[in-house]
Write a protein that binds this DNA or RNA. Structure first.
Lengths: 339, 339
DNA sequence: CTGAAAGCGCTAACAT
DNA sequence: ATGTTAGCGCTTTCAG
C-alpha cells in the first residue's frame, strides 16, 4: 500500500496538517520542520493521492478539450491536433492536465453541463465544430469557464479565439504589391468557406486601398480541393488578360493551381507567381516550393491555454479574443519584380 | 450550491446508500424506490460529484496517453493523432476519459511513477517514443497497467501493440505477384528505419518463397524523404535491367519515385508499376493515384483502448500483442499484367 | 509555528 | 429491500 499523509506525519513526528502545509508551501512552517517532513516523504516515497487532493480542493486541475474526432481526423484536420499540442503545453506548464472528448454538437450541451455540475474539469476548451445556440445559453447561464476555438458563425456570448484570416489576406496582398506584382488573381472557396472568404476580403481591402482594379474574372470561386484549384486556374488562363500572380485560398487549391500552370507550360515564378495560405501539406514539397502566409496554430493552442487558465482563476473575466498574427514565408513561387 | 447525494436522499425519503445504489444499478432496489430517487434527482438537477466518486471508488476512470507532442507534431505525425482518436472512442464508449500528456523519454519514468502512485489515472497508453529501459523496469516492478504503442526496439517486459509491417510487406509482394508482376524493386530507408526494414523483410520473404531472384541493384536504400525517393529511383533506372514495379517504403519516397519516373517519361502503370505503404499524405492525390498497402491506425487506437481497459480490469493479464491487419487498396499505379 | 478536527461527497461492507 | 456507518486521503479553519 502506498504511503499516505498520515505515514509521513508519523515518521516526521508532526501532524498531517503540517505535512499538507509543507507540500503546499505555507510560509508559516520552520525550515527545520520542512526538512524533517521532506526527508520523511523521500524515505516513504510519498506521492500525494491526487484523487483525495482533488476532492478536498474541489478542483481537478484539469481542462477538457471538446471536439469532433471523426475517423480520419488526424489526417484531414492536423491543425486541430497542432492546436491541441500547443494547448497541452500551455496547460502542462502550469500543472494542468488536458483531457480530450469526442463530441457531436447535439451531445455537447448535456455533456458540458454534466462536466460542470460534476466538477470533472475546471474549464473547457471547445472546438467551434461542436457549438450551438443551446450550448451558448447553457454556458452563459452557468458561467462555465470556457474558450471556443474558432469564431462562432452566429451571435453568441462565447469567449472565442481565432486566426485573423482577413489580416492574413491583407498581408498577402501587401507582400505581393511590395514585390512589384501588379495584377493579382484570387482563387478560392465559395461563400460557405468562411476562411477563404475572410482571406479574400483582406486581399481586396488592400487592393482597394491602393486603387488596384481587379477584373471580375481574376476572382474564381469553387470547391476547396485540388481538382477545383486546377479548374479555376484553367478558367483564369482562358482569358487573355492574365494576372501576374495567383493567390490560392488554401494548399489544396494551390496544388491544383500549380498542376494547371505546369500543364500550360507556365514557369513559376517567371511567368506567374503563386502564393497560398497555410504551410500544409503541400507548400513545402511542391516544385517550386510555395510562398505562403502561414498561421501559427500551435501558438493558437498556447493562447487558448493561457486564456482558459485565466478564466479559471478569474471567472468573471469577460473577453472575446481575435488573435494570432500570421507570418509570411517567402519561397520560390514568388520573386521580386520591382528591381 | 449544487445538490449532493444527501439532498437527493432527503427529498426521496431514503438513505444515501440507496441513492448510490440506484445510480450504480444495484439489482436489489425496488422499482418504486428507483422511481422516487430518479424523480428527486431530476427535480434537484443532481449530478454526482465525480471528484468525490473517484475518491471513494479509488479510481478515476481515466486513461493517460503519454507521448512526445513537439511543435509540428500535428503535421508531421498525423498517425499518432489518428490512433488517439480511435483510443478516445474505445475509452469513451466505456465511460473512460482520455487525457494527454507531452513527455520526453527522460521525464517519463518519474511522471509515470507519479501518476501511478497518485492514482491520477487508472492506466496509461504510452507511445514508443517515450519508452526507455528505466521505464520498463518501473512498469514491471510496479505492475502499472499500460500499453505501449509501437514495438520497443529493445528487449522489454512492456505490453505493446504495433502494426504488422512485415505482413504488410508480404501482402504487397503477394498482391504484385498475383497481378503478374515478375520483377519487383524496393526503395526504402536505411536499417535505422525499422518500419521500412520490416516491410522489406516481408517482401523478400514472399519472393524467396516463390524463388524469385532479386538483383542487388533492385534494392535501394536511402533517407525516407521525397528527395531520396527521387534519387533512388534514378539509380534504379540507371541500370538497363529494369524491374516492372517499384515498391516504395513510404509515401514520401513514393512521391520522389513518381517524380523521377515522370522525368524519365515513363508511364505509370504501363511502363512501370508503383506501390507504396500507408495512404498518407500523397497516395490519393498523386497522378496517377497510388496503389497502397494501408494500415488502419484508427483501428489500432481502438485496439489499444480495448487492451488497456482489459488490463485495468485484470491487472495480471499478461499479453504482448502484435496486430492490426493491413489492407490493400488497388489504384491506378498498378495493373493486372497476367491477363 | 503547529496541531486537532471538521469536512469534501460518495461508496460499500455490514446490519437489519 | 433498505439503512447505518466507516472510511477514502487531503485541506483548511481555528485554537493554542
Amino acid at each position: 500500500m502506498a504511503a499516505t499523509i498520515k505515514d509521513v506525519a508519523k515518521l516526521a513526528g508532526v501532524s498531517t496538517a503540517t505535512v499538507s502545509k509543507v507540500m503546499n508551501g505555507s510560509y508559516s512552517i520552520s525550515q527545520r520542520t520542512i526538512d524533517h517532513v521532506r526527508r520523511a516523504m523521500d524515505e516513504l516515497n510519498y506521492h500525494p493521492n491526487l484523487r483525495a487532493r482533488n476532492f478536498a480542493r474541489q478542483s481537478t486541475r484539469q481542462v477538457l478539450f471538446l471536439t469532433t474526432l471523426g475517423e480520419n481526423a488526424g489526417f484531414s484536420n492536423p491543425h486541430m491536433f497542432e492546436i491541441m499540442s500547443g494547448l497541452e503545453h500551455a496547460l502542462g506548464n502550469k500543472g494542468y492536465l488536458l483531457s480530450v472528448k469526442d463530441m457531436t454538437p447535439e451531445q455537447a450541451p448535456e455533456f458540458v453541463r454534466d462536466v460542470f455540475e460534476s466538477k470533472m474539469a475546471d474549464g473547457m476548451v471547445i472546438h467551434a465544430s461542436v457549438i450551438s445556440k443551446a450550448l451558448d445559453d447553457l454556458v452563459k447561464q452557468k458561467e462555465i469557464p470556457h474558450i471556443v476555438l474558432g469564431q462562432p458563425h452566429f451571435p453568441s456570448h462565447f469567449c472565442w479565439l481565432d486566426i485573423d484570416n482577413k489580416l492574413a489576406g491583407e498581408m498577402a496582398a501587401n507582400f505581393l504589391l511590395q514585390h512589384g506584382y501588379q495584377s493579382l488573381a484570387f482563387i478560392g472557396g465559395t461563400d460557405e468557406d468562411k476562411i477563404s472568404a475572410h482571406r479574400l476580403a483582406g486581399v481586396l481591402s488592400v487592393l482597394k486601398e491602393y486603387d488596384v482594379i481587379v477584373p471580375k474574372h481574376h476572382l474564381q470561386y469553387g470547391a476547396s480541393d485540388c481538382e477545383s484549384g486546377f479548374q479555376m486556374t484553367k478558367q483564369l488562363l482562358h482569358n487573355p488578360n492574365l494576372p501576374d500572380v495567383i493567390i490560392c485560398a488554401n494548399n489544396y487549391i494551390a496544388y491544383g493551381c500549380v498542376s494547371a500552370l505546369k500543364e500550360h507550360q507556365m514557369k513559376i515564378p517567371d511567368d506567374m507567381g503563386v502564393l497560398t495560405f497555410d504551410d500544409y501539406p503541400f507548400s513545402r514539397i511542391l516544385e517550386p516550393k510555395l510562398t505562403v502566409v502561414n498561421i501559427d496554430v500551435y501558438d493558437m493552442g498556447i493562447q487558448a491555454g493561457k486564456l482558459i487558465l485565466n478564466k479559471i482563476k478569474k471567472p468573471n473575466l469577460q473577453i472575446q479574443f481575435y488573435c494570432t498574427l500570421p507570418s509570411i514565408t517567402a519561397r520560390e513561387s514568388t520573386k521580386n519584380r520591382s528591381t
